[in-house]
Simulated assay, not measured.
Amino acid sequence: MPSVSHCVVTPEEAGQKLFQYLSRRLGKDVPKSLLMRLVRTGQVRVDGRRAKPFDRLRVGQTVRIPPVRLDEPEKPNDETQACDERLFLPILYQSNGVLAINKPAGLPVQPGTGWTDCVAARLAVMFPEAPFQPTPAHRLDRDTSGVLLAGTSYEGLRRLQEMFRFGGIGKDYLAVAKGRVDAPAHLVDALGKAGPVGRERVVVGAGKRAEAELMPLRPGKNFSLVLVRLLTGRTHQIRVQLASRGHPLLGDMKYGGGGGPLHLHAWRITLPEVTVSVLPDWEGDMAVSEDDLTPF
């Protein structure tokens, strides 16, 4: 029979609203309506007193959490655990509430229809005892690889999200574009969505401003390696801006780049305190080396 828990708010958890704290502690399977009822009926208390769902918690406060019936998760056997470890994501940087991992192509950031394996789920397996579950602070398309940032504390997550929203983070991508790209360009477009629900495409026209800098690295007759520095962060921005100029990305079937793996990689993210980068694992003529990136 579950018992009452008395949990001390850690520095990583501080700053969250009580409702968020309970949701993270008890899991997403617990209905929001139940969490609200537990708080409003006084079954959840903070430092022995009744609290409101949206009160913010401070370091060192004690939260009384009543027993909540949850199905016990099946304990993984050794074989399952070994499989989980093989799925761990490479860590590029971890400090001061920030975690950077190398996301492989083909892995979505969040679960969705038909997808349960994702970055968020793998982080939960990698950090089962973390006081604050590492949470992705932004998204990369499922088929885009490279640097992805997560917050390992509530304050770290909030800071990253604010920088992505209002500026303060440098984002450099590598891509293989069809055709010859041999001149730098400043790309400015208005991007919006069109098409039926579930099959939307991003198109150039009315919509939000999308801005980027395009720099050729290795021009070729049929394909060119390029660096794109994002100045905004719109859905499918690089894919659409290059495709609209006659240079769809290799492997981008949605926007005219043909089949095969998508050649789009988040190479480098620059924060005020650190720059994190990782080369793509492309092979053959598409392989990228540090020499290609020396000027940058």
Rank of each mutant, 00 (worst) to 15 (best):
P90R: 08
T144G: 12
G146C: 10
R45Q: 13
K193S: 03
L217I: 15
G156Q: 07
E12F: 04
T41Y: 01
V202R: 10
K254W: 04
C83A: 06
G205F: 02
K75W: 09
P248R: 14
S224K: 14
R180A: 13
V63K: 02
V202F: 07
G259F: 00
S95W: 01
M253V: 15
P216L: 13
P184C: 11
G15S: 07
V228I: 10
S33E: 03
L231Q: 13
A130H: 14
L157P: 05
A51H: 04
M1L: 09
S277E: 05
A51N: 06
K103C: 02
L187S: 11
P104H: 02
P104I: 06
P295G: 02
E72T: 11
E273H: 08
V109P: 00
D84H: 13
G97H: 00
A287D: 11
S3Q: 15
F127I: 07
Q43N: 13
A190Q: 06
D281R: 06
T116Y: 12
V30Q: 04
Q161V: 15
E273K: 03
G195Q: 12
T235D: 05
E72D: 06
L242A: 12
L293A: 04
G170S: 07
Q94L: 08
H265D: 07
L149W: 06
P134A: 06
K178G: 15
V278G: 06
L217D: 09
A185T: 12
A51Q: 05
R56F: 03
P11W: 09
C83H: 04
G156T: 14
V44P: 00
F132K: 02
A130Q: 07
L92E: 06
A185N: 11
I169Y: 12
R122C: 06
V240S: 04
C83D: 04
T270Q: 12
R58W: 00
V226P: 12
S5C: 09
G258L: 08
R86A: 03
V119C: 05
L140A: 07
M36D: 11
L26D: 10
T235C: 12
M1I: 12
W267N: 02
P134D: 02
R50D: 02
R158A: 14
A130D: 13
R86P: 01
W282T: 11
K193D: 03
R201F: 14
R180N: 11
S3I: 08
R58S: 05
T270H: 03
T232W: 07
T270G: 09
Y93N: 00
E213G: 09
I238P: 02
I169N: 10
P31E: 02
L35E: 00
R122A: 11
H263E: 01
L123R: 00
S23I: 07
I238L: 05
M126P: 06
L279E: 08
E129P: 01
A177Q: 09
Q43L: 15
P128I: 13
A82M: 00
R209W: 07
T135L: 09
A185F: 09
D117T: 03
T294K: 15
S145E: 03
Q16G: 11
R180C: 15
M36L: 14
T135G: 08
V278H: 04
P136F: 08
L262G: 04
D182H: 14
G106P: 01
A130P: 05
